[in-house]
Amino acid sequence: MNNTNKQRSFNSTKLKHFVIFIALVLLSILFLSPIFIVLLNSFKGKFFISETPFLFPNKETYVGIANYVNGIRKVEFIKAFGYSVFITVFSVGTIILFTSMTGWYITRVKTKFTSILYYLFVFSMIVPFQMVMFTMSKTANMLHLDNPFGIILIYLGFGAGLSVFMFSGFVKSIPIDVEEAASIDGCNPLQTYFLIVFPMLKPTAVTVAILNAMWIWNDYLLPNLVIGTEYKTIPIALQKLKDAYGSVDMGARMALLVLSIVPIIIFYLICQKHIIKGVAAGAVKG
């Protein structure tokens, strides 16, 4: 009796799990379908896209890679891709290097000044971009930071809040003894930092890198205001596909959407473990 009961409850959980599994499969399909629909439409002639976006391309509507060729040419997409990669890679690199040093410095050197700095960094995290949008882009203009190199400095300043906060949070949790031993052994602070401290900061550095990379790669407004007229990153290029009258080549737009999504998905599939962990860690601390 007892046994059959167990058996029955086992079967009912199994059935329940099966139902949930099917529900999750359907939900996954639902989640992926928007991207799939864009992909389908990127192979259709531009006049068919708005009319029948949910149909597969057929003999009449299929245009091969014409939209891709067209879109890439129209907004100089290769260039935009290059700017996006350049700005993201070097900004993230710069942010990691300098904010980790600053995070360590203001945690280990205890003065009024460093604690004020710390609170300023934390404060900057809650200020919305619109608050400084106008004045920041004017300042960048005046200081001639309106080029792909100058914007790296802007990103360092803007990314500093969260990044310094996360690094100094981690430094607080590691014992100071090792660093003191190194300094007694004759290491100067630079050696201590790069040989002892930075290797320990690695997990936080990965998180900070991922959070900043996601933000900078997708950022639209800041680069548009600072360098947008001359140097167009991918989001700016997508937005500029609209012509002066507001009309859009839908074919080119679909192709460019696909081209913008594919690198992200590849990057995600390669390091999804780090990304998911990093984003979760960042959320908890931010």
Partner: peptide, 18 residues
């Protein structure tokens, strides 16, 4: 070396504009 570069960028990009 440790704090000044971040601080300058922070001043230009955030604090002064704010």
């Amino acid at each position: 070396i440790f704090a000044l570069p971040t601080l300058i960028a922070f001043l230009i990009a955030f604090l002064i504009p704010f």
